[in-house]
Simulated scan of single mutants.
Amino acid sequence: MDRCGAYLDTMRSTAPLVQCITNFVAMNVMANVLLAAGASPAMVHDAEESGEFAAIAQVLTINLGTPSPRWVEGMEAAARGAVAAGRPWVLDPVAVGATAFRRGLGARLLALKPTIIRGNASEILALAGAEARGKGADSADTVAAAEAAAQRLAEGSGAVVAVTGPVDFVTDGRRGIRCGNGHALMPKVTALGCSLTGIVGAFAAGQPAFEATAAGLAFFGLAGEEAARRAAGPGSFQVAFLDALHAMTPDDLDRGAKLEAA
């Protein structure tokens, strides 16, 4: 895939309003990540307004995170609002296989036709109805083990599916691409996975979902690589990561993206 930087340039020039339905742990981190990248986050989740707001935002992201009945109402209202308004939306099926409640919620949200699904290998396997070995919100399966399930999920749902891990895999059911950007410190900071979903959403606002997802993953992972060069550990990494997101140029992304056809 050529010119990842063009997707970053477009995202920043439009500064999309990203509606983020996520958990309390992730809200602050996710908002700061989106601001540093050049997007505009809005943490709007209550059912009284989430559906209406989804028609205002350029893109919606939904993270299962820490669901409660009221938040679930907000998720479903927002997804319906985004679809009705023709807005893209991204599903992050956190720990979807862990409980019957989450499995049911994941199935209902999947039926509301997300544009993109981004999760770890265990989450994608579980959402696709395959056997998964997740440990809470963490994956106990490899990305490679989830690639076939991701392709089936993409074909059946019509969504672009991104399986994230040491080497990410993205498919629309016909094409596949792998992204090798990232650093081992990234999973040591809470809510970076949630924040990645926001970045994928920001890139997908007004841009082709498959290519935008791959570019967003490369941007996020490359920022992690740059941050790790200046960090002494997870604490300083968080600060350096925000700085790296903010400082990265489209040319930097073109030079550093590690994308290859799968």
Rank of each mutant, 00 (worst) to 15 (best):
A162F: 10
T66H: 01
L110S: 03
G206D: 12
A77Y: 08
G165V: 02
M30A: 15
A132W: 07
A150D: 13
T66W: 00
F219R: 07
A111I: 09
A212N: 11
K188F: 09
Q151L: 09
P234L: 06
R255S: 07
P208R: 13
C179V: 15
A137Q: 15
A154Q: 07
G5Y: 04
G5V: 01
G216F: 06
S139D: 07
A85L: 07
D168V: 08
A205Q: 11
M27T: 14
G198Y: 04
Q19L: 03
N63E: 11
A15R: 13
V167C: 03
M248A: 07
F169R: 02
A154V: 10
E123M: 10
G5E: 06
L91M: 14
V170I: 15
I62F: 01
K258I: 00
A228D: 12
A145T: 10
V163Y: 04
V160T: 11
A262H: 04
R175T: 01
G136D: 10
F203Q: 05
V170L: 05
A39Q: 03
C20F: 00
C179R: 05
Q19W: 09
A6T: 14
A37P: 01
A218L: 09
L127D: 03
R255G: 03
A111C: 02
G158Q: 13
A84E: 15
G86T: 08
G221D: 15
F241K: 02
Y7F: 15
R152T: 11
S157C: 07
T99Y: 11
G104P: 02
A78G: 05
L153S: 02
R118T: 12
E131A: 14
T22G: 00
E76H: 04
I177L: 13
D9R: 15
G224A: 07
V29A: 08
P166K: 10
T197Y: 10
V33G: 03
S122Y: 07
Q207T: 14
A84T: 08
G233T: 13
G38I: 08
K258P: 00
A231R: 13
Q238A: 10
D9G: 11
R255F: 03
R229F: 09
G136S: 08
T10R: 15
N181V: 06
G5I: 02
G206A: 13
P166S: 06
L222R: 11
N120G: 08
F24T: 09
F203C: 06
L259P: 00
G51V: 08
W89R: 01
A57P: 04
R12W: 12
L217N: 11
G233C: 10
R103A: 05
D9S: 15
P16D: 06
I124F: 02
D172T: 05
L35P: 00
P93E: 07
H45S: 08
A159F: 13
P250K: 09
P88K: 04
Q207K: 13
A150F: 06
G81W: 10
E211W: 10
F53W: 14
A148I: 05
Y7T: 04
M248Q: 14
A240R: 12
T190L: 05
G38H: 05
G97Q: 11
S50M: 07
V90S: 01
R3M: 00
